[in-house]
Every structure is written in structure tokens, then in C-alpha cells.
């Protein structure tokens, strides 16, 4: 009985960690969708690039003799967030702005093209092999039955949760308290009207891409170091899952993306723990189908109102 409980706790830990990553990446999908109504299919690749940047920075710092995990993670985080935001900003400028205002399908195809381009661009630069890295933060707390199942809460998990929560609080404060953040929300409600208030909506759109990329970078550095292995293709499936999370929570809604990400992460962890790890994708995409059938606007989304 107690074993069952600790097993459950362990799955919950796994779920929160995975969910943190889904939630952070889902924010990028949901914000971009909210503002220009397009799915940025290159967003998973942005995550992947941030993982690489994080790895490179950590490796470089280690070579310079830095061995404090705190400094390594902070350094990787700062550089990855900055550079990845630049990627997000530039991707919008190069691949989406020129086709904006035309048929939505064109932007979608442009996004898929961007995704393939980024994957191969990293593959050429970094080779397609897995890159591995030793864990930065070791150890953790163990509790449970020493003779039966023991649940472990590694310190790295705690680091991930704390940073994820901090990033989400920062984002929430940004969109509710600052002028720029409020302008992002204004744009997502009525782009034309925001423009009529004199606000440069092109800049706000690019800013939204940059913020989404920064959130993905937080996930990229944390998850990259947590799992310890990356390759140029990690962004694809994770991006799809995060997109599922965004739809689950209600696409266009930022709290929805956070909630959807967590739910999806927990659902997958429970499936892996109690059913079989092979079924976790079945469960997450099955969940997507169910949501689309019974609540197409997601858990926290609002039904689209036809303007008259």
C-alpha cells in the first residue's frame, strides 16, 4: 500500500518535470496564435536550438574552469534566453511577416519550411549525433520504504520547478503590469484597433515571438541538462506535445497553456508509470482528440465569437 503511494508520488514528480517543459513551450504557441492566429510550427526547433546554446555555454564555461552548478546554469540561461529571443524575433521577420495578411496556409507552409531549415542548419553545424553531458546537479532526497519502493526527488527537479514557476510569474507580471505586455494582449484581442492607437503592432508581434522563444529557452536549458542528451530532432516531438498542451488548455490563453502543459505532463507520466511508456504518446494525442471533440476551445479557452 505504502509502495503504491510512493510510486504515485514518483510519477507525479516525473509529470511535473515534463509538464514544466510542455507548459513553457506551449506558451510560445499560444501567444503567437493569440496574436496572429497562426501555428508557429518552427517553435519546437527554437526549443532545440536553445538546448544547444545552453550546452555550448556550459561546455565553454567548464573549459574555463567554472564548476559551480549555479553559475553554469545561470550563465547558460542568460545566453540562451538572449540568443533564442533573437532567433524568435528573426524567424518572424524573415519567414512570417512577408506572408502575413495572405492566406493562412501560406504562413503554415512557411513555418514548416522554417522548421526543416532549422533542424538541418543545426545538423550541419553540430552533426546529427546525440550530444551528452554529465549531470550538473547531483543528489536528491529519498523517501519511502527502504525495503520496497523508494521515491527520489532529485535536486535538479526542484531547480527545474522553481525556475519554471519563476518564469511563469515573470511572464504573468509582464503581460498584466507592463505597458508592452498589455499591448501584447491588446494585439491579441484586436490588432487593427491597437494599430489605431498609434502602437506599432509589427513590433509587438515580433516581441511576442521573442518572448515565446525566451520561454522555450528556459525549458531548453533546463530539460537539456536534466535529460543530459540532445540531438537536432528533439524539438520536433516535444514541439508537437507542447502544441497539444496549448490546445488542451485553450489556444490563445496563457494560463491555459500552463495548465494544459502540466496536465499533459502528468497524464504522460501516469501512463508511463502504470501502463507502459510506449503508450504515453497514445494517451497524449488521444487526449487531444477528446478535447477537440468535446471542448474544441480547450479547458480555459473561450469559444470564438463571430463578430457581427
Amino acid at each position: 500500500m505504502a509502495d503504491q503511494f510512493y510510486l504515485f508520488i514518483q510519477q507525479l514528480f516525473n509529470g511535473f518535470t515534463l509538464g514544466s517543459a510542455y507548459a513553457l513551450i506551449a506558451i510560445g504557441y499560444t501567444m503567437v496564435y493569440g496574436i496572429i492566429g497562426m501555428i508557429n510550427f518552427a517553435h519546437g526547433e527554437v526549443y532545440m536550438i536553445s538546448s544547444y546554446i545552453g550546452f555550448i555555454v556550459i561546455a565553454a564555461l567548464m573549459m574555463m574552469g567554472v564548476d559551480s552548478a549555479f553559475l553554469l546554469i545561470t550563465g547558460a540561461m542568460i545566453v540562451a534566453i538572449t540568443l533564442t529571443s533573437v532567433y524568435g524575433f528573426s524567424i518572424e521577420r524573415v519567414a512570417y511577416r512577408p506572408v502575413r495578411g495572405q492566406n493562412r496556409l501560406i504562413a503554415l507552409i512557411s513555418a514548416i519550411g522554417m522548421s526543416i531549415f532549422l533542424q538541418n542548419y543545426v545538423r550541419v553545424g553540430q552533426s546529427s549525433r546525440d550530444i551528452a553531458m554529465p549531470p550538473l546537479v547531483e543528489g536528491g532526497w529519498t523517501f519511502g520504504n527502504p525495503d520496497g519502493f523508494e521515491a527520489t526527488l532529485t535536486y535538479m527537479r526542484v531547480v527545474i520547478w522553481v525556475i519554471t514557476i519563476a518564469a511563469m510569474i515573470a511572464l504573468t507580471l509582464f503581460v498584466t503590469r507592463t505597458k508592452m505586455g498589455r499591448a501584447c494582449r491588446a494585439c491579441s484581442e484586436d490588432l487593427g484597433m491597437t494599430n489605431l492607437l498609434g502602437i506599432n503592432t509589427n513590433f509587438i508581434i515580433a516581441l511576442t515571438f521573442a518572448i515565446g522563444a525566451a520561454m522555450a529557452a528556459v525549458a531548453g536549458v533546463l530539460l537539456g541538462t536534466f535529460y543530459g542528451v540532445i540531438n537536432p530532432y528533439v524539438g520536433f516531438i516535444l514541439g508537437l506535445k507542447a502544441f497539444t498542451a496549448a490546445v488542451l488548455g485553450g489556444i490563445g490563453s496563457i494560463p491555459g497553456a500552463m495548465l494544459g502543459g502540466m496536465l499533459l505532463g502528468i497524464a504522460e507520466a501516469m501512463t508511463a508509470g502504470y501502463l507502459s511508456a510506449e503508450y504515453k504518446d497514445v494517451v497524449s494525442f488521444g487526449l487531444l482528440i477528446l478535447v477537440l471533440l468535446f471542448r474544441p476551445y480547450g479547458i480555459l479557452g473561450k469559444p470564438e465569437v463571430e463578430k457581427v
Binding site: K179, R182, R185, A186, E189, D190, L197
Partner: peptide, 15 residues
């Protein structure tokens, strides 16, 4: 902006 408060609406007007 219907999902924003009165304050936020005015804030956007006085950007």
C-alpha cells in the same frame, strides 16, 4: 478590449 480592464484599456489609449 473586452478581456482587459477599464484601466488597461485607458492605458493602451495613453500608450
Amino acid at each position: 478590449f473586452s478581456r482587459m480592464t477599464v484601466e488597461e484599456n485607458l492605458n493602451m489609449g495613453g500608450f
